[in-house]
């Protein structure tokens, strides 16, 4: 970009509007979280964020978010594979419906999943005789997080699969590799960065998710309370300092995940750029 003559007008106003709006809506409010908790001393802060009930919520939130992201990585990439590689009836409809969790309000998903997995629900009444309980248990959190995370994996893996060079696979076959070996050594390494990006996106979303989880989780202290719920609970008790402290922990984790996602995407771009 050596040519810096700006023929086009409007750079100043457009950038000014962008920066103003970004600061007012996002940056200043987010910064207030960190300035606010300054009135907690370090030991007070630590006492809040390491309280047993809060620690139990981290374990649940992060454990279940990891589990859901792993399940979605497996089935989501399988679904993406089928959508890209095979022709089968109903494919277009399924492709369109993959984005349902983006479009369906989380509260609706929450009550619907609860109805399905309750003892009298379609799925609950099958699982009940087997001694498996999902609704109002930690497993319910997992189910809700699988629901909201699925499109992240499908929609990051799908375009990479579509862009794969058929020639690479043909070369592998010519060199004597079977389909499975070709998949493991040719296809999987190419889609791996996208798969990891999808995994991280699904994980990041799952950690912060609230609406779909609170209905099905049962919200039992120490057992099935997620971290965002801890913030709500503290706010309802007018414990603003406590809510802010837990919020800071979550924000820092979100920032770390955001950096990771950006790094993964840069890696993905580099990897596909080199391979093609």
């Amino acid at each position: 970009m050596s040519r810096q003559t700006r023929v086009l007008p409007g750079f100043g106003p457009a950038l000014g509007l962008t920066l103003t709006w970004l600061s007012l809506i996002v940056l200043i409010p987010l910064a207030s979280v960190f300035l606010r908790a300054a009135n907690l001393s370090l030991s007070e802060f630590w006492a809040v964020v390491s309280a047993p009930r809060v620690v139990a919520s981290y374990k649940l939130s992060f454990g279940m978010a990891l589990g859901a992201a792993a399940i979605n990585s497996l089935f989501g990439s399988m679904l993406a594979w089928c959508l890209v590689r095979y022709r089968f009836p109903g494919k277009r409809l399924i492709d369109a419906l993959v984005d349902l969790p983006f479009a369906l309000p989380t509260a609706v998903a929450g009550i619907s999943l609860t109805a399905l997995y309750a003892k009298t629900g379609w799925i609950g009444q099958i699982l009940e005789p087997l001694g498996i309980q999902v609704a109002f248990k930690p497993a319910g959190v997992l189910v809700a997080l699988v629901f909201i995370g699925l499109p992240f994996v499908v929609r990051t893996v799908q375009p990479v699969l579509e862009d794969l060079d058929v020639e690479n696979e043909e070369a592998a076959i010519c060199l004597g590799a079977g389909r499975w070996r070709t998949f493991r050594h040719v296809i999987l390494p190419t889609i791996l960065p996208a798969l990891l990006t999808g995994f991280t996106l699904a994980f990041a979303r799952a950690v912060g998710e609230y609406g779909s989880v609170i209905f099905i989780a049962g919200n039992i202290p120490m057992v099935s309370e997620i971290t965002p719920l801890m913030i709500i609970t503290k706010l309802e008790q007018f414990d603003y300092a406590g809510a802010t402290a837990v919020g800071e922990v979550m924000l820092l984790i979100s920032f770390a995940l955001l950096l990771l996602i950006n790094g993964l995407q840069a890696w993905a771009a580099k990897r596909t750029g080199r391979d093609r």
């Binding site: 996002v26 987010l30 979280v33 965002p228 603003y240 920032f255 955001l258 996602i261």
Partner: peptide, 29 residues
């Protein structure tokens, strides 16, 4: 700047609510 614009996607919705309570709530700034 592009990364900052994406920021709200990676913040929990509960925190999105919390920040405005801290700014404009009865005990806020």
């Amino acid at each position: 700047l592009t990364a900052l614009i994406d920021l709200p996607f990676s913040v929990s919705p509960v925190i999105a609510g919390l920040v405005y309570v801290l700014m404009f709530g009865a005990h806020g700034w």
